[in-house]
Structures are given as C-alpha cells and as structure tokens.
C-alpha cells in the first residue's frame, strides 16, 4: 500500500513538473539541477562533516553538483521543514541523526509525522560510550552497578545535552540495571571529557572520537559501548550487550528523502550513494576525520529507523513519568 501511495504521489509530482513545461522528470534524474543535502546542524559538526564525506565523491558518480546546506535554526527544525517544503523530486534531501528528527518529534509538537520520511542510506554510526579516569576505583560496569546499588545517586555522570545521543542510553542502562545516578548535562563531549579529567564527575558519556586521544594516552578507561558489536577504535571495550545489559542505541547519520519521491529516483540515489561511500575518496576523507563509514542501503536503514523510534518511545515514556 505504501508503494502504491508513493507511486501515486510520484506520478503527481511528475505531472506537476511536466505541466510547468520543465525538462525535469524522474527519468532524467539527476540531470535537471544540482542536488541539495540539508543538514539541520551547524557547519563543522559531525553530521556536516559526514555529509561532505558522502557528497564529495557522490557528485562525480552522479555527474551532478551537490550542495551541502547547513540549516541549524530552531534546533534543526528549520532545515527539516525546508526539505518538506521543497518539491518531492529527490533533489532536496535531509541528512541527520535521530536527535532533531525523532527525539524532537516525540517530545514536542512538530509539523511532520515520522512516517513522512524514507531513510535512504546510512553514512556512519556513532556509538555512545561510557568512560572513567584510568585511576578511578570503578574498573568495569560491574563495579559501577555495585557502587550505584550501595548508594543510589551517589555517582555523577556527565553526558551531552538533555536527551542527547549519549544521554538516552544512560537512561536505558539505568532502567535495565535497576540503578540510579546523578545526571549532569553539559554542552557536549568536550565538556563532559574536561569534567571527568578534572575529577569533577565520576563517569562520562560521549562517543569514541571524544575520548580516543585520552584512551591512547592511558589517562582514560572506556567502560562499555552501546552498540551491537564492538567499536573498531576501541577493540578492548566490551559492549553493554556482552555484559548482559540490553542497551543497544547507536546513533546513525542517515540520508532521508521526504515521502513522495519517485521510486526510480530513490533507487538511483541509493545505488550511487552506496557506491560513493565505498569509493577510495570517501574512505580517505573518512580516515582523516575519524569517521567509520557504514554504507547501509534502504532495507537495513529502514529497520534501524523503526527500531530507534520504538526504543526512544519506550525511554521517553519513562522520562515523562
């Protein structure tokens, strides 16, 4: 039924375009004009960098220019709304993690429905990671759970912003392990790191790239990562799942098309983007900026998208209580 609707909408868009007398049609894609990839974050951030890693080789493969447009206004909603207001022809796409798209939609009023989006290709995945100072008495997750059970809320955990990518797995972990800690929101990874280094808090929650240099230097000990498999940059760090806690909540950076883009166009985009992510150019850029590419296509990303929505719904329902 979904495909039927997509087809119908696609035809509608096609007709609309044709009636304007333009040369553009789904069959011509992507010859009509340059593509735009809208990032609901500021320039220079993780999502922006990842998008450029995809866009740079993809322009050559598609034979069409791709502009990366950063629209961080209104906490990212300006960028998301902009994509929805454009013609559904596949020339304007959204690249985001789940924060502005899913978390905001579940906690506040937004102009769209979560089913209005078609996840196309995953560029990379960032994995929430818990860490302590190397000299900390907490040697592993077991110590953490034990200490927290003895004296609830005695341990402080600095994470990113409230309900951010490292914060949600913390909430999920506490629920799974039946413990409670004092949460200290910060503006992001480097502040959380500074507080752990300065011994202001006991535990930090961030992503591997934040702590990579301190782990290498031996000053920081990662406790666990919240992904299905171990992270390549922290091969000795166990996953929460291995330790018996079902906390799997990696954040994807994924390319989305708004619903209504013709199926042929989606196919072209998926195929070419995957090809671009597997190119030498993308690998080289990714290596420089410590991004681990995960070129997943539509089937896999759709599953991850649905999975994220349902886990977030559960966690956020608990937070509201």
């Amino acid at each position: 039924m979904l495909t039927k609707r997509t087809m119908l909408l696609g035809t509608a868009v096609l007709l609309a375009v044709l009636s304007f007398g333009a040369m553009a049609s789904a069959a011509d894609f992507p010859k009509a004009k340059q593509l735009r990839m809208v990032v609901p974050y500021g320039a220079g951030g993780g999502v922006d960098i990842s998008t450029r890693i995809l866009a740079t080789p993809a322009q050559d493969i598609l034979g069409q220019r791709i502009d990366v447009v950063c629209m961080p206004g209104a906490g990212g909603q300006e960028g998301i709304n902009f994509v929805l207001q454009q013609p559904r022809d596949g020339y304007t796409l959204l690249v985001t993690d789940y924060g502005p798209l899913v978390t905001t939609a579940l906690t506040e009023e937004v102009t769209y429905d979560l089913s209005d989006w078609v996840p196309l290709v995953q560029i990379t995945e960032v994995v929430p990671t818990f860490f302590v100072l190397a000299e900390s008495p907490l040697k592993n997750v077991e110590d953490w759970v034990k200490a927290a059970k003895e004296k609830p809320e005695s341990l402080t955990v600095a994470h990113g912003r409230h309900l951010s990518v490292p914060h949600l797995p913390l909430i999920l972990f506490e629920k799974t392990a039946g413990i409670k800690n004092t949460h200290v929101p910060t503006t992001g990874g480097s502040e959380a790191l500074a507080y752990v280094l300065g011994k202001k808090v006991d535990i930090g929650a961030s992503v591997p790239s934040t702590i990579a240099s301190t782990v290498k230097a031996g000053t920081m000990r990662p406790l666990a990562v919240c992904s299905l498999e171990r992270v390549a940059t922290l091969p000795d760090t166990p996953t929460m799942k291995e330790l018996g806690y079902d906390v799997v909540l990696p954040a994807w950076y994924t390319v989305f098309a708004p619903k209504g883009v013709p199926e042929e166009t989606l196919k072209i985009l998926e195929e070419k983007f995957i090809e671009a992510l597997k190119s030498e150019g993308a690998k080289e850029m990714a290596g420089k900026s410590n991004v681990l590419l995960t070129p997943y296509g539509r089937d896999k990303t759709a599953g991850l998208y649905e999975g994220t929505i349902s886990s977030l719904k559960t966690i956020l329902a608990d937070v509201k209580k």
Binding site: P72, G73, A74, G75, Q77, E108, P185, T187
Partner: peptide, 23 residues
C-alpha cells in the same frame, strides 16, 4: 530558547523559530 539543562523551551511565545534561542 531551550534552557541549557533540561531543554525546556523558554520565552518563545509559541514561535518555533525561537526554540534554538537568539542566534
């Protein structure tokens, strides 16, 4: 805009563009 700790939205008077604060 959003407060720095719990993300509650302040003084926006329902204008969604103000959610992110004054740039």
């Amino acid at each position: 805009g959003m407060d720095p700790m719990m993300g509650s939205v302040r003084l926006t008077f329902g204008i969604s563009s103000l959610r992110g604060g004054i740039p």
